[in-house]
Simulated assay, not measured.
Amino acid sequence: MKNTDIGRLHHVGLVVADLATARTVYSTLGFILPPPAYPTLAKDGNPPRPFGAAHTHAYFAKNFIELVARVTEDNPIPDDAKLIPLQIPPEHLARVTAAITQTIDALTARLARFQGLHRLVFQTSGIDATDGRLSSAGVTHGGVNSAARQVDTPEGPRTRTVRVIEIGNVPEGMLAVAEADPAQQGADHPNGAVELMDCVLSVPAAALGDFEARYAAYVGRPARDDGPARVFDLDRGRLTLVPDDHLAILLPGERSPALPAFVAYAVAVRDIDATRDLLRRNGVPTKVSAAGDPFVPAAAALGAAVIFRRME
């Protein structure tokens, strides 16, 4: 069933305790991560200091994986970090500072719940149409807003503006819809990953129907049955809702750190045998999913299992 707006996953985001450690883990998994971006802000006449949330991305041509951490005095700034000055007019400083503080509080709450996958963003081909559809479906959201982010382009790092609809904080995480960035460049990841293809949400079995109805409103299409699971097939990629009592069958050995929770995501790779080879050489533990895909358990991948699938 073709949708007019939601076409694929835009990105997933992991909230981590220590960005330096997280980069090391993801490098071992075979992902290329650019130096992290640290926003800086000058307050009360003092020199600019890192403030808010630092992040880095594993980029593909059409979507990405984000690692984000709070900026705290306990986490030293890496030597290769990119400091991004926030240029805020004085009359807006109090409002923007309050908004950033609210973001820090949200990340703190998510990290206290567990380290792992806490953000899911869908990609839309027409954000104004999505705005209207969500409103008509009774979905509470923050309307269309602009968000700036740093991306690497052939000409070097650039600040890009992307329009976003924040659906907001729901029990399982932070949800949003965003436009694609046509200037985004995919990296040549050693593990062969080329695209984000799936996100797995574990929910209480008794509430599966409620979650299915809610996500049908978000993506504007129905789910299909896949055994006990429910799958929303997008134009490219998908979202999988799995009852908690079936998770260990879908991904042997996995347990949800909380309920509900995003517990895994999948990437497509060019050569699955080469991916297995790299993980073995790097000493990364792997298991095999019910579908026959190799995956790295959550315990070895910052709290979210990473599934590798053969590119279709």
Rank of each mutant, 00 (worst) to 15 (best):
I6S: 01
H10P: 02
H10V: 01
H11F: 08
T21Q: 12
T24Y: 12
T24H: 14
V25Q: 08
Y26M: 07
S27E: 06
G30K: 03
G30I: 03
G30C: 06
A37H: 13
L41S: 08
D44A: 13
P47I: 11
F51R: 13
T56F: 01
H57C: 05
Y59F: 13
N63V: 04
I65M: 14
R70S: 06
R70I: 11
D80Y: 06
L83K: 13
L93W: 01
A98S: 08
A98V: 01
I100R: 02
I100W: 00
T101Q: 13
L117K: 06
R119T: 15
F122T: 01
Q123N: 10
D128H: 06
D128T: 07
T140Q: 04
S146P: 02
G156K: 10
E166K: 09
V177L: 05
D181C: 11
D181F: 09
A183W: 13
D188L: 10
H189K: 10
H189T: 05
V194P: 01
M197Q: 12
D198W: 00
C199E: 12
A207N: 10
L208G: 04
D210C: 08
Y218V: 00
G220M: 04
P228G: 08
V231I: 14
L234W: 00
G237N: 14
P243K: 07
D245E: 04
L250G: 06
L251D: 05
P252N: 10
S256C: 07
P260C: 11
A264P: 03
V267L: 08
V267T: 15
A268K: 00
A274L: 10
N282P: 03
G283I: 15
V284F: 00
V284H: 01
A291F: 15
P294S: 05
P294E: 06
P294Q: 08
V296L: 04
V296F: 03
A299G: 12
A305N: 15
I307D: 02
I307T: 09
I307H: 01
R309V: 13
